[in-house]
Each structure stands twice: as C-alpha cells, then as structure tokens.
Design a protein around this nucleic acid. Structure first.
Ligand SMILES: [Zn+2]
Ligand SMILES: [Zn+2]
Ligand SMILES: [Zn+2]
Ligand SMILES: [Zn+2]
Lengths: 130, 130
DNA sequence: AAAATATCGCAACAATGTTGCGATTAAATA
DNA sequence: TATTTAATCGCAACATTGTTGCGATATTTT
C-alpha cells in the first residue's frame, strides 16, 4: 500500500512552497522552517513529495538543486517538459510553464524526460540596470 | 597574462578525454589517471580546461556533473547550445552536437546560456531490450 | 643558470546528501 | 475511545563532491 501520511513537518514544507513564487533549495527550505524538524526529515519529505508528483526537482548548471511545486492544471499525464530560468544575478529559479522546447532527435534514442534550463538575467535584475 | 602551462597531469587528463566517446565525471577521470596526480589537481585542471574552452561542463538531472571535450568545428563564437543525452540505464552522457532546441521566451528575460539535457535510453541500451 | 610564476600535493574544511536504527506519531481497526 | 501497525522522525555516523591555503615543485622566460 505505502500510504503517505500528513505530518506537521510535511504540512510546513508545503506551506513554504505555497508562499514562494520561485524554486527552493533544501537549505532555503530548512531556513524557513526554523528548526521545526531535522534536515534529514526535509530530505525525506522532498523525496515523498516528488514521488507523489507534488513537487519537481530542478538541477541547475552550477550544480545547485532546487524544487518547485507542480502545476497540475490541465494535463492528464504528469510530465515536466517546461523550461526553467535561472538568474545569474539574484540566483532565483523560476518555472517557465509556457516555454517548451521543440527539437529533432536522432533515431534510436528513447527520450523519457527533458531538462531545459536557461540562464541569464531575470526581468527584475534586467530592469535594475545590472 | 596568465599563461597556461602544459604539465604532465594536464596532458594525461586530455588523453583521457581523447579516448572517451562520452562525457566524464571527475571521479571517472580520477580512476583512469590511476593516481598520477592528486584529486585537487584534477579539479584545477578541469577549471583551466573550461576557461580555455577546451572542455565544457554538463550538469545532469540527478545532480551529477560531467565534462566533455568541445567540438570546435565551424563556429566562430564559442557557445554550447547543443543538447546532451543521459542514459538512465548505463548512465553514460553524450553530446548531441546536432540537437539544438528552438523555443520562444517571454519578454524581459535576457538569456545568456542554455542547458538542454534529455534522458531515457541510449541506442546501446535500447537494443539490449531493457 | 637564475628568476618569476604557474602548478602541485597535502591537509583541512564546507556543503550536500544518504543510511541505520530505536523512538515517535498518524491513521486504520477494533 | 483504546489498541494496533506501520509510516515518519531524530540523531549519529558516514559518503561524496568540491574548495581553500600554503609551502614545495616544475615550467617558462630572461
Ligand atoms: Zn534576477
Ligand atoms: Zn518547473
Ligand atoms: Zn545506455
Ligand atoms: Zn556537449
């Protein structure tokens, strides 16, 4: 069966995601939780949330890993084929739900998942004349 | 000035890249070098090779980082906008030099770099009826 | 050959993620 | 509601990956 339970820690993590407009790293989540639970617990909660397709993982060019809530709007099959933007100035990572790359693959590859991350300057930082 | 020197360790690392058809992680390089130099030295060599645009870095969905030789064929401006394929079975990562995504960005973003990684089954593993 | 400096080895550290296990707690059942 | 049971937690310990400082070494220039 493997029923997943609603614990206080899990609820708290979900609230953090709810409040945030950008993707969050494990460390950022831990800071916001303010010692409500152990850091190992956060790792395990993130694993469960990913398994349940409630959040998805984003690994960035510089090696940092972040997580963001899934947008379940109108897809039957749950797949993350949208792009992510990583700002080199403020280091925020946001989902670009509407940006989906088109591409042509060579034969004999079976593509199951894609990871499309763009980096540069986000609108905020672009306007702040960096 | 910062002239870069040709040392035995650097030459050995380059030979490892030359022999390999797929991208390599720091650990994989270290194993092939067989104790020829310290692991810190390998990190520093990789940094230099990246600076000199001889290799490029690929960060994978699962957080692993690999490096591959650059293909300097016929571009004036040196940019890595090609895709990479990561096999979920054999974990090999290969450059797909000819696969370049097309996409439409929202306004107000300044894109400087892209990271397009596809994962699934590579031709080898696909034929081995996994 | 001597001087200048890029590179190296080593030790020490930091960040991130994983595992095992006994204690705790949510949820199902009686 | 009280009991059961299994998912979750906390803690300690460990693994991996990457970084930094510094004195020693090796390469390049003069
Ligand atoms: Zn920004
Ligand atoms: Zn996303
Ligand atoms: Zn494969
Ligand atoms: Zn490549």
């Amino acid at each position: 069966m493997k029923t997943t339970r609603n614990t206080t820690a899990k609820t708290a993590v979900l609230e953090v995601f709810e409040k945030s407009k950008t993707a969050l790293s494990h460390t950022e989540i831990q800071k916001q939780l303010n010692g409500i639970c152990d850091r190992v617990t956060i790792y395990r909660i993130l694993d469960r949330l990913m398994n349940d397709d409630i959040i998805h993982k984003i690994s960035n060019l510089d090696g940092t890993v972040k997580y963001a809530k899934c947008n379940h709007s109108h897809q039957r099959v749950h797949i993350h084929n949208h792009a992510h933007f990583s700002c080199e100035n403020c280091h925020e990572i946001t989902c670009l739900e509407n940006v989906k790359p088109s591409y042509i693959m060579p034969h004999n590859y079976k593509v199951k998942e894609i990871n499309f991350t763009l980096s540069g300057l986000c609108p905020n930082c672009l306007n702040s004349n960096i």
